[in-house]
Design a protein around this nucleic acid. Sequence first.
DNA 1: TATTGTTATACTCTATAACTATA
DNA 2: TATAGTTATAGAGTATAACAATA
Lengths: 153, 153
Amino acid sequence: MPENPGIAAALVRLSFLVQRHYAQICAQHDLSPAQAELMCVLKDQARGLTELTRMLGVERPGLSGLVARIERRGLVRRETNPLDRRAVTVALTGRGKEITDDFYAEVSGRLRQLVAHLPADQQEQFTTTAFGILLAEEVPPIFGDAEEPGTTS
Amino acid sequence: MPENPGIAAALVRLSFLVQRHYAQICAQHDLSPAQAELMCVLKDQARGLTELTRMLGVERPGLSGLVARIERRGLVRRETNPLDRRAVTVALTGRGKEITDDFYAEVSGRLRQLVAHLPADQQEQFTTTAFGILLAEEVPPIFGDAEEPGTTS
DNA sequence: TATTGTTATACTCTATAACTATA
DNA sequence: TATAGTTATAGAGTATAACAATA
């Protein structure tokens, strides 16, 4: 029987655990999880609003408000496209970039600590399996490079 | 070097992926993620409010409102303890139990589908690693049995 | 007309502070 | 006094519906 009864509980609990750490680091940086997610998506490139609704999985009005709130804090900037004056692009400001880099590094460090007690080969196997799931689901690069895990270089 | 650069991104993205599926199934059952989480915790036993704040990681006032909203919908019931008249216990009603069982089964099924394309031994290895992380972090049984994964019976 | 965004509205979630009741 | 909960308040997140501007 290919059914694995424990894997669902493992996935759910692990996701809540990661979200809890994520949220805690957000709070330390005075960011909400949604704000942090947006900023991590913008970390390496500016994005259009429509593109962001797809990547973040939120509706337009929600994104509109989300951007407005961090724009008000000077962490993000709206840019208009002269070619299509309806379109809006969002980019991090200098200060937004700093905060995002800090946040990103801290989350990465915390999660690596989380698995630090596991043998290296088990970590690698786990990462490979996780990316196997993510690739099949076409999960957007919400966090980390768009590149693949194999790039351990 | 024991550093695994991809594992943090894997954990974050995977957690968002699971949360997305979880939230979608919540919506199908007309539940918010927080409500569903509470109900899954109550699935097999009633719990005290203080205990629930620890398990769910929320403050008392938040839990108070959360319970009030699903109580109003008849899915949950408050019970008082005659021995300590300050204490309150929360339990699922019959209808709450039905909905929770449905929800639980659907989430389990969906997540098993998510990994169905992976070979069985890779699924098992993944589950083992995940529980290794969860045990080390003492994550409460938010979803699934309090028992261990080895119980594949 | 179709698309891009924003505004209006309503509800849930969640934190802090202040309060009530019981121990 | 200390503990268990609730109420008050405020802000964030997010959905739907209605609107404005541009294509």
